[in-house]
Design a protein around this nucleic acid. Structure first.
Length: 336
DNA sequence: ATTATTTGACCTTT
DNA sequence: AAAGGTCAAATAAT
């Protein structure tokens, strides 16, 4: 398993993020003694910041353990603190067997856990910036809560095959496990450029257990929580995708989902940003994409040779303007 | 009227 | 065979 980072680099990375997290905690404690009208907002942001740090650390730790067992105890201690909403890889051996045997069509799959604060409205916190349409719900054996099935609302309009499953955690009623399959090939994403996106209604009252609560929030652009994604597997064969540009687009979209938001919005650019993300070749080498790497490399090579690398600003989505030209965010088209 | 969700049936995978 | 995943008609929401 090739790492983009050396052991020492990884340790430094972990140390930096840990320090950032610690300082954020201190800030939080400091804010506890003062009171202002923006207190709630600060708490909210801090919650998300800490959450993002936890996810980043979890990703790196996971990586590190998978590729190298020489992690020093001190680093583990420093990063293994309470992370109740830590991301957990749900890689299954079966999935790898499938990949090896080619019995089943390989489909990209990755899971993230979202911990919500009920008082803030869970739908907003579960928002991942995409439009989803529910197409099913199933009781799952051994699970307390049903699993909701969603597909991209632009399935027909744009041929986007992305789907996700949302399931309330058995143990923790405010944690939701969201499993994504396939990349979005649509270019419509909530809150990227249009703050007037119409909200999509939430599941109706018939939904006794409100497990799946996807859709929009009022704060879609500050979507730190989407950074908590962790690639647990990607068996995707991208070759059947009829969309060329969107395919590349989604590579960056995924990168953004997994790392982009925290690296741009949270981590100091002087510390991390410029070293980690702006160069797309780094993205493909990042260990979160272990299973993607071979498939993404050709595309990235194409990008490097034929287009200008995406310019990344602090809040912009990754290279969206590069591939989404001509699409109007004001025109949603029809959903299906 | 149109669009989204619910839910049992049906299909696929294990 | 059974569990997971999707379809689609019925229903609800707007």
């Amino acid at each position: 398993m090739d790492n983009l980072f050396s052991n020492s680099e990884l340790e430094n990375l972990i140390r930096e993020i840990s320090q950032g997290r610690e300082m954020t905690t201190q800030l939080q404690n400091h804010l506890n003694v003062s009171s202002s009208s923006s207190r709630d907002k600060c708490d909210y942001l801090l919650h998300k910041i800490l959450y993002s740090y936890d996810q980043a650390l979890s990703i790196i730790r996971n990586n590190r353990r998978a590729s190298d067992e020489t992690l020093t105890p001190s680093i583990l201690m420093a990063t293994n603190q309470d992370s109740p909403q830590s991301l957990v890889s749900d890689e299954s051996d079966q999935d790898f067997k499938d990949l090896a045997s080619k019995k089943r069509k390989a489909v990209a799959k990755w899971t993230k856990k979202v911990k919500v604060s009920p008082e803030r409205g869970i739908e907003g916190q579960l928002d991942d910036g995409f439009y989803w349409r529910k197409y099913g719900q199933k009781d799952i054996l051994g699970a307390k809560h049903p699993r909701g099935y969603y597909r991209c609302s632009h399935r027909h309009a744009q041929g986007c095959l992305a789907t996700k499953q949302v399931q309330k955690s058995d143990e923790d009623p405010i944690t939701y496990e969201i499993t994504y399959r396939r990349k979005h090939t649509c270019n419509t994403r909530v809150g990227q450029t249009n703050v007037n996106n119409p909200p999509i209604s939430l599941p109706g009252p018939q939904n006794i257990d409100p497990t799946p609560l996807p859709q929009n929030s009022q704060e879609p652009s500050f979507n730190i929580q989407t950074s908590l994604g962790f690639v647990t597997q990607d068996l995707g064969s991208h070759t059947e995708n009829p969309f060329i540009n969107p395919e590349i687009n989604n590579i960056f979209s995924d990168c953004e989902d997994i790392l982009g938001n925290y690296s741009f919005n949270i981590l100091s650019p002087s510390t991390f940003g410029s070293n980690i993300f702006p160069n797309p070749t780094h993205v493909t080498n990042y260990d979160c994409f272990d299973n993607l790497e071979s498939q993404l490399s050709p595309f990235v090579a194409g990008i490097s040779s034929t287009t200008t690398p995406p310019t990344v600003s602090t809040h912009s989505s990754f290279g969206f303007s590069e591939f989404g030209s001509g699409f109007s965010f004001n025109n949603q088209g029809y959903f299906w």
